[in-house]
């Protein structure tokens, strides 16, 4: 565990906390894409299949449980909670899941570290996570008034990916045999997807104006 990895995990955790805070206290999920949240729930379910098979550390186990529980509860809130679900912007959240799910599954069957069920699911989760933010970015672009929490949420998610890249660079130089093309390429693609958002987020923060994305 290095500092970049820890900082990455913490911003990831922070993004979830920000989202839960918005849902719990403001009882609103305005500007949040249910499609993206459902994709994340699938990502974590597929990746953490090893939760009860391989024990790595207490930290690892707890974090996995937190991400699993939080992603599924967010989906539950957005679909079932009688107040929260009314704030969901269904009309603008039109991205089709299947256009990302199917290609990711095919890619995982073709490109994986080993052709076993768990490894294919692991690769699938890596590919899916890389593009799972797309419905969220599309929704933000269609939202006139992006509230602060929705903006911070996406920013922290992007920061988490960027920090993971630094973590890989660090691990590459400090650990033997640390070459992982699948997670590296998927991680870089994922971070690049945020580039445009980052630009507008940081500009609005520097100029102290409300975040607004060009249509």
């Amino acid at each position: 565990m290095n500092l970049f990895r820890l900082a990455g995990d913490m911003t990831h955790l922070l993004s979830v906390v920000v989202l839960l805070l918005k849902i719990h206290t403001i009882k609103s999920c305005a500007g949040i894409s249910l499609k993206t949240q459902e994709l994340y729930a699938i990502v974590f379910a597929a990746r953490y299949l090893d939760l009860f098979v391989h024990f790595m550390s207490l930290y690892n186990t707890i974090m996995k449980l937190v991400f699993l529980a939080s992603s599924f509860s967010i989906v539950w809130y957005m679909r079932q909670h009688k107040i929260v679900r009314r704030t969901y912007d269904k009309e603008h959240d039109t991205f089709r899941h299947q256009f990302i799910l199917l290609p990711c599954l095919v890619l995982a069957l073709l490109i994986n570290e080993k052709f076993t069920f768990r490894e294919v699911m692991w690769a699938f989760s890596i590919y899916l996570e890389a593009v799972a933010i797309l419905p969220q970015l599309v929704l933000l672009q269609r939202t006139r008034n992006i509230d602060n929490l929705a903006g911070h949420y996406v920013f922290f998610l992007g920061a988490y990916r960027a920090l993971y890249i630094l973590n890989w660079i660090y691990r590459y130089f400090t650990e033997p045999h640390f070459v992982h093309w699948i997670s590296w390429i998927a991680g870089i693609v994922q971070t690049l997807l945020y580039a445009d958002f980052f630009y507008y987020y940081i500009t609005s923060w520097k100029n102290n104006v409300k975040l607004e994305l060009p249509a």
Partner: peptide, 10 residues
Amino acid sequence: RPRGDSHDEL
């Protein structure tokens, strides 16, 4: 798993 494995990441 051996050292240098990225599967320990979240």
